[in-house]
Amino acid sequence: MGHTGFVMRSAVRPSPLFLVILAVTVAGALLTLVEQQIALTTGIVLLVIGGWAVSLCLHEFGHAAVAFRGGDHSVRAKGYLTLDPRRYTDPVLSLVLPMLLLLAGGIPLPGGAVWINRHALRSKGVESAVSLAGPLTNLVLGALLVTSVALFQPPLGLAAGLSYLAYVQIIAFVLNILPVPGLDGYGALEPYLPYQARRYGQIARPWAPLALFALLLGLPELGITVLSDTLFGLTGWIFDLMGGEALYAQLGQLEFRFWN
């Protein structure tokens, strides 16, 4: 395990593209400190979009890092340990589409994917851990963002942007742990399911997440809100439990979706 850890650390080399996205996120945070409305709004938009792109990379890196430690060393050759978003499948489906849905409906579609050789993993427990590593990364990021606002008490604009980004991370966690084929919650359960159930899950995997998001976005338009109410209610409960400031998150969302 010690040798594996050393090899993995030597393989973790953040790509220049990831560093550029991180720099955009930091620039957005700095813009929120400028005392002009256009700078505040632009800063929050850049902070949230850049921060979400960074979290997508870290989410997939989490899957890959646990898989590497669990026996699948092919993730290194595939470049999954470089945090390069281009390595995580199609850039449009993995980055652009999730960002558009975040902008349109405030719901972060899980983006990206890493292809794990599950036959190389040591046990069913490791398979489950690989699936859970991604959403737990979002949860930890949300907690760190909430904690940073509480500890450092930044100016209102920055606090609003960080709080909304934290809220988005928690939504991503809640969505990803749902036991829906194609999402990580199902992936954590899949190794323990009977063969027939896993077969049906494989068939549903490509379209089940999109059907879920269509329901989340479309049902409220028909006056049916139980699904979205449950999702946002659980997200709000976790956010409050962490000590998040709901008013900051609401302000951040208003500035992020300024056209509304």
Rank of each mutant, 00 (worst) to 15 (best):
G70R: 00
L47N: 04
R76Y: 03
L254T: 15
T225Q: 12
A188P: 02
L151N: 01
V168I: 14
S228G: 13
V54S: 15
Q250T: 05
L97F: 12
V226T: 08
T82V: 06
Q36I: 00
L175V: 02
Y88K: 05
D240Y: 13
N117I: 05
M1D: 14
H59Q: 05
V66Y: 03
A67G: 03
V226M: 04
P220W: 09
V130F: 14
G182F: 03
F68H: 13
I203D: 13
G28S: 15
P91W: 12
V24G: 15
A23M: 10
I170R: 15
Y200T: 02
S148K: 11
H119L: 14
P155F: 10
S163Y: 00
M99V: 09
R13D: 15
L136C: 12
P98R: 13
S15H: 14
V24Q: 13
R86N: 09
D240E: 06
L210E: 08
Q202N: 06
E35W: 10
P191V: 05
L145G: 13
S10R: 10
D229G: 10
F258S: 08
L102V: 09
G236K: 08
L162S: 10
P16A: 14
G142L: 03
L234G: 06
R13P: 02
N260T: 03
F213Y: 05
V96P: 01
L144Q: 09
L33G: 01
G223F: 06
Q196G: 14
L58S: 11
R122H: 15
W52E: 05
G70V: 01
L156N: 11
K124L: 02
P16H: 15
G182D: 01
F256L: 13
L222Y: 12
E60P: 02
A214M: 03
G106L: 01
L158A: 07
A214C: 09
W52I: 06
L151K: 08
E127T: 03
P135K: 11
F152I: 10
I44W: 04
Q37H: 06
I49L: 10
P154K: 08
R69Q: 04
V140G: 13
